[in-house]
Amino acid sequence: MNLKVRVQKSGKIQLSDEFITLLNPSKNNPSIEFFIHNADIVVRKFDSLGTVNGLEPIRRHIHQNGYVVIPKQIRGKLSLKENDYLEIHKRRDTIVMKKIVIKTNVVKRCLVTGEESEDNLEFLNGKLILSKQGLGKLISEIESKFLYENKKKSC
């Protein structure tokens, strides 16, 4: 079963009963552990064994109605923000969450050529948008200035 959930304020998400049952929290200890594996958030029932693959899991509780809060450290590492979506699925006795990147057909304008296209390339987390032609012009200019500076120093 796959589930798609929206991240709420402060990293709060709601798990379905099936996922809560999988984690099998007891009334006395409704704790679960979070850790990152590749770009996935892995959640499992609290296990006092400690580290997982050299990583220290972060312990949290399952709240009433199946709410859990994804730890801030994990949200920060994965750039997970309010209103982002996660796809959740089972893997053996754990839950694996993956951030869903929703691509919109946004027309992006090249900073060098002014060309508008969905195919333009993004750099620096979307702060720099270049077409292939614009990228070529930028590289040529950087190379010429760099080579000019090196020739000037060697003379």
Rank of each mutant, 00 (worst) to 15 (best):
R91Y: 15
C155M: 10
G114A: 04
G76I: 10
I142G: 09
F123S: 08
S154H: 14
I13W: 02
E149R: 10
Q133Y: 03
G66F: 01
Y67D: 00
Q64R: 01
V112P: 01
L22E: 10
L78F: 07
L23E: 04
L49V: 04
S26H: 06
L23S: 10
V68R: 02
H61V: 11
H63E: 01
S10F: 07
S26M: 07
N29H: 09
K27Y: 03
N65D: 00
V68M: 01
S131E: 01
E141W: 13
S117Y: 02
L78Y: 08
P57K: 03
E118N: 09
N125V: 00
V5D: 01
V96R: 12
T113A: 03
G114I: 00
F35T: 03
R75D: 11
Q73C: 04
K98A: 15
G76K: 12
R91L: 15
G134V: 03
T113V: 03
N83E: 14
K132T: 05
K45M: 09
E141T: 11
L128V: 15
K98Q: 15
E116S: 06
L121Q: 06
V5L: 05
E143A: 14
F35H: 08
K127I: 00
N38Y: 07
A39W: 06
K45I: 05
V7T: 04
H89N: 14
T94N: 14
I20A: 07
N65Y: 01
L49G: 11
R92P: 03
Q64V: 06
K99N: 11
S140V: 06
V5K: 02
I62C: 04
I62P: 00
P71M: 12
I32N: 02
G136A: 10
R44I: 06
G136H: 11
K81C: 07
D84N: 15
L23K: 11
L49P: 00
K45D: 07
L49D: 12
E56H: 04
E87Q: 15
E56S: 12
N29W: 02
N38W: 01
F146N: 13
D47Y: 07
E56K: 12
R44Y: 08
K81E: 12
S10Y: 06
L135A: 07
K137N: 05
D84A: 13
I95H: 05
L86W: 11
S140K: 14
S31L: 09
E118C: 05
G126D: 13
H61S: 13
D17P: 11
K145R: 14
L78M: 14
V52M: 09
S140F: 10
I129N: 05
S154F: 13
R6C: 01
L135D: 01
F46W: 09
M97G: 04
R75T: 13
S16T: 05
L128E: 00
I74N: 06
K4E: 10
F146H: 15
D93H: 13
E18H: 04
D17T: 02
K108G: 13
D40A: 09
Y148H: 15
K153W: 10
S144N: 15
Q8P: 04
L130M: 06
K108C: 09
L138E: 01
R91W: 12
V7N: 00
Q133A: 06
G114N: 04
V52E: 11
L86Q: 05
R75V: 08
R92W: 12
V7H: 02
Q64C: 00
D47S: 12
L124Y: 10
L128S: 02
